[in-house]
Design a protein around this nucleic acid. Structure first.
Lengths: 229, 229
DNA sequence: TAAAAATAATAGTATTACTATTATTTTAAC
DNA sequence: GTTAAAATAATAGTAATACTATTATTTTTA
């Protein structure tokens, strides 16, 4: 994917970090290798000490960017959804036909992630693995309401809102646009998880991908004629 | 809900525990207060030491039942899905009409959980809260493939399989029965989470409940006529 | 009543998730 | 080009976690 604008920056709520990691080379290394480390060994086994060792920096220096590893995960998920939102707006903005617009949106949100060279220090494919395997842990906590109040999940909710509006544009009478939108986004992550680990309870695989399932689903729910797209 | 058979026991894979907690009073207290403690303070803040204190037993005694708190969570989720499977089979077994059968199944699987007096030491409502807020953590780990091989998630997968068969019975031509079944079950948990924490991205609430959304969804996807049920 | 099994008590360990302090290096301002 | 400020690194320390191991005590059963 290529961008017309240079030097795009994904805007993450600045309450999530102590110091913007995009503002320094060390910050970028923290994000870059943090993504690698978490995607390799999982969020539970990830510590700032290990990350410090890996980037040949000090644990204490990482703490000057992020309060703790939970906020680091919130940062990564927020960045990811900001990036997806960008792609979504970019790809659908000029589409007039509401059905095409919606189907394109679903395609963007559910297709396998590819590397995006615009953001040099972020490996989006590895980050997507983190989103699939770890992102629910960012909100499945006892602190979710407080953090939600502080705007930690704004980008994610805004993205669901955008998809929901597109659903409404296609079928203003449909009663559950928000639930359907949230389910497409969250459900897609889950289907990818099933492909990797519980193949017996999904119909998706290397050939039939989540976009096929979700486009078919939404077409049927909203009674869109399948015109062969 | 009442059961015809007395002394039903939900069969949990015995690799999950070291000693069957249903076999002793201490084991039952571990499960009973374990459920309360996790639902009150969350899985991250839960420790066997705290549970020991609460039930006035010793940390080391709890370790004789469960290897660690992760396996305890796997046990609880496995018990929960076993219980749901029981309800599902019980409620749908005698229904001949495939559409009614499927809609009843969805109702059972997505409706708010009520206390079941059959299992005295288990507070199903609190357990349901754990399932909503913590159960994904039981499989979102680096050990998932090994544990899956050992049968830790069998009951859950069997339940999805049952729902998927009912979908197939209604519409043998539908291409994604397994994905749809897994999405109804997992998506329902997510919708309840949204009702509690992210109300702006769901259409469900105290009046419009997940069963309404999911029955409508499946009816539309499989082109079932809504006959007013 | 003795033996076995279950439970409880105690102690100990490596790791985690930090905080605090000080030292060193890098950068920016004049 | 020096100085001050900011950033980074090094070191040490702490309470809690997630256990293991050993021994003591209580309960069950044969």
């Amino acid at each position: 994917m290529e961008y017309i604008l240079k030097d795009i920056k994904i805007g993450v709520n600045n309450k999530i970090y102590l110091k913007d990691p995009e503002s320094t080379p060390l910050g970028k290394r923290i994000v870059q290798d943090g993504i690698r480390l978490i995607s390799e060994s999982g969020f539970e086994n990830f510590t700032f000490r290990k990350l410090g060792k890996r980037i040949k920096s000090n644990e204490s220096s990482i703490y000057r960017y992020f309060e703790n590893k939970h906020k680091f995960l919130v940062y990564l998920t927020s960045w990811y959804w900001g990036w997806k939102e960008y792609q979504l707006v970019f790809a659908t903005n000029s589409i007039e036909n509401t059905e095409n617009k919606l189907l394109t949106a679903i395609e963007i949100l559910t297709k396998p992630v590819e590397r995006d060279s615009t953001f040099g220090h972020i490996d989006e494919v590895a980050l997507n693995q983190i989103i699939i395997n770890e992102s629910s842990k960012s909100f499945l906590t006892k602190e979710v309401d407080a953090e939600n109040k502080d705007g930690y999940f704004l980008i994610y909710k805004r993205l669901v809102g955008r998809l929901s509006e597109m659903i409404k544009a296609v079928d203003p009478g449909y009663k559950f646009p928000k639930s359907l939108a949230s389910m497409v986004i969250e459900g897609s992550l889950h289907q990818y998880f099933l492909i990797d680990h519980f193949t017996s309870i999904t119909d998706c695989n290397e050939k039939v991908l989540p976009p096929d399932y979700f486009k078919n689903l939404v077409q049927n729910v909203l009674k869109i004629e399948n015109n062969g797209r």
